[in-house]
């Protein structure tokens, strides 16, 4: 674990293993308290509130395997068009 100082805000906690790095920090605005979970490598982040976090507590390891069905994030809806379509058509 690494604690990253975060100017004027709460520090960021970073944990890592051989496969990835993830950062967690506390965010609050007025009444709103969230944990910010972000993936510096993939560029995704999510804000989790108490109920969302609570819902994680009863999930099984298999559920996380399902979430990892797309191991590098959700991907984008591809409007798949062959490269040949771009060549000398217009």
């Amino acid at each position: 674990m690494t604690i990253i100082r975060n100017e004027g805000q709460d520090p960021i906690i970073q944990i890592a293993n051989e496969f990835t790095v993830i950062q967690v920090s506390y965010i609050s605005t007025g009444q709103r308290e969230r944990l910010l979970v972000s993936s510096p490598r993939l560029g995704f982040q999510t804000l989790l509130d108490p109920l969302q976090l609570e819902s994680l507590t009863w999930q099984t390891p298999e559920m996380y395997s399902k979430l990892l069905d797309t191991p590098y994030g959700p991907g984008v809806k591809l409007d798949a068009r062959p490269l040949s379509a771009l060549l000398g058509k217009d």
Binding site: L68, D69, P71
Partner: peptide, 8 residues
């Protein structure tokens, strides 16, 4: 459990 671009 996961394959990138499994659908595409």
């Amino acid at each position: 459990v996961g394959v990138p671009a499994g659908r595409e």
